[in-house]
Amino acid sequence: MNITRYAWCFSHGVFHTFPEGDTPWCTATWIAFTATTRIDALAAKHAAYGDAQFLHDLPADKQIEVIGIAEARTGQL
């Protein structure tokens, strides 16, 4: 069974999909969501970050949160 990781990219303003187990091809600022469908991932994204499409659309505290998650994922802390 192929499992897809859904991730909202705040740099590109779109969802990216990455096959589970593969190295994600996007190195920008994205947040992955635990969801089995794109619709569920969009609902999770909306619940956490509202209608923000890009990083600058978020309030400062959410921008810091997103950057921190992305940096932790890439080991840039």
Rank of each mutant, 00 (worst) to 15 (best):
Q63S: 11
W30N: 04
P24I: 06
F18G: 05
A48Y: 02
Y49Q: 05
S11V: 13
G68D: 04
T37V: 01
G50I: 05
V66R: 04
T27L: 12
E65Y: 12
T74L: 06
R38G: 07
N2V: 14
A28I: 15
F54I: 11
V66P: 00
F15L: 05
A43P: 03
A72H: 14
L58N: 01
T23S: 14
A48M: 09
H56N: 08
N2D: 07
E71F: 14
C9A: 07
A35M: 04
L55Q: 04
G68A: 02
T37A: 01
F33S: 04
N2W: 08
C9Y: 05
A35F: 01
T17R: 01
G75Y: 02
K45L: 07
F18L: 11
P59G: 11
I69F: 10
N2I: 15
V66S: 05
F15C: 03
R73S: 02
A7S: 10
C9R: 03
I64Q: 10
A52C: 11
W30T: 04
I31F: 01
T29W: 08
A28N: 14
A72L: 12
S11G: 15
F10C: 00
Y49P: 04
E71V: 10
D40A: 14
T36L: 10
K62A: 12
A48K: 05
G13F: 15
W8D: 03
T37F: 04
